[in-house]
């Protein structure tokens, strides 16, 4: 069977101890949350650290704290807990639904929100055994110097595969990052970089401590749509959240489309220019087309990128229809009118 290499596992109980351990054991040290993704990656030899710091015993990372209509979620909050948390499901339902779509019940019992945000990027040329990668001759992310996704490419384009990212962006969430020089707070959409090797903008001596959800305005609607081949277990092949803010007349006032599972970084498409539009099938169609035009899935995760691009448009349409009170799946008759989009 696949074996784990030898490493030291530290189990600090305070954030101070976490920072200290991070400092002492640089450079071969990493943070270990639920471990549901990390352990397979360690077994497959994709990542190695001599020291892993488990965050499980750090109490304050588990805290869920309401504030001014908002919610601060400790990074170690479990996905299963959050998916059914009454405050979260009431105020940020699309996020709760997204978390409930991650992997399987057993994995959600172990996995954490912070772990999902810091999930390593995925690619069909990386998430393979050591033997497989050696047979390939390696890649930018794995003992090699060429990219197989973008031949001739100089940067790793492995895909951001965390389901939580798109809905968090849609809700305008921020993250707290603690380091030796103190706490900083940044928007989730600024957390990511386009380098698939180091796509999370945390320094090696920092720790992501919490996710901060601002109070959602009553006029804000968010839907999360995920597509994977199977209905459970799989990482997203399409991951998109659509936010529509509506004014008193029910017309669009602002919004955005946040798309993950493309490259290492999420794509955010603002909708401010569409202010005043009616929430109808035409809007669904136009936003689907916008996502189709502006997003180009790569052959990095294991499914036909051309189909994923079409499917992204479908999922955007369905998100909009849902918020517009239309049936999510159009009737056969209406399909014909959608024409080439299909």
């Amino acid at each position: 069977m696949l074996r784990l290499p030898v490493f030291a596992l530290h189990e600090p109980e305070t954030l101070g101890q976490v920072l200290e351990l991070l400092r002492i054991h640089q450079p071969s040290v990493g943070l270990f949350a639920g471990g549901t993704d990390l352990l397979p990656n360690i077994k497959l030899g994709q990542t190695y650290r001599a020291h892993w710091i488990s965050l499980r015993r750090v109490e304050e990372l588990h805290e869920i704290t309401p504030f001014d209509g908002g919610l601060r979620l400790g990074a170690s909050s479990g996905l299963a807990t959050l998916a059914t948390d009454p405050d979260l499901t009431a105020g940020w339902p699309a996020l709760a639904q997204a978390l409930d779509k991650i992997a399987s019940p057993q994995i959600r019992n172990m996995a954490t929100l912070g772990g999902n945000l810091c999930l390593d990027t995925r690619c069909r040329y990386i998430n393979q055994s050591q033997m497989w990668r050696q047979a390939l001759g390696g890649c930018l992310k794995s003992h090699g110097d060429q990219c197989h996704v973008v031949p001739g490419g100089k940067g790793c384009v492995a895909a951001l595969s965390a389901d939580s990212v798109a809905p968090l962006i849609a809700y305008g969430a921020e993250v707290d990052i603690l380091g030796p020089s103190g706490l900083r707070r940044i928007l989730v959409q600024d957390l990511y970089d386009s380098d698939g090797l180091h796509h999370v903008r945390c320094q090696p001596d920092e720790v992501l401590t919490a996710v901060v959800l601002p109070a959602p305005p009553a006029t804000r609607h968010v839907r999360y749509r995920k597509w994977s081949v199977r209905k459970s277990i799989d990482f997203p092949l399409v991951s998109v959240a659509v936010r529509l803010d509506v004014d008193a007349q029910g017309l669009l006032s602002d919004g955005l489309i946040a798309v993950a599972a493309l490259g290492p970084k999420p794509r955010v498409l603002p909708l401010g220019q569409l202010r005043g539009r009616v929430l109808d099938e035409q809007l669904a169609h136009d936003l689907g087309q916008m996502a189709f035009d502006r997003c180009r899935p790569l052959p990095n995760i294991p499914y036909d990128p051309a189909y994923r691009r079409e499917r992204l448009a479908v999922e955007v349409r369905r998100a909009v229809r849902d918020m517009a009170g239309l049936p999510i799946k159009p009737l056969a008759a209406r399909l014909a009118l959608l024409g080439d989009q299909l």
Binding site: Y125, W132, L136, H148, V149, P299, A306
Partner: peptide, 12 residues
């Protein structure tokens, strides 16, 4: 319609 990547992938 997916085309597998360039040289090196044969047989994987």
């Amino acid at each position: 319609s997916q085309r597998d990547s360039g040289p090196g992938v044969e047989g994987l």
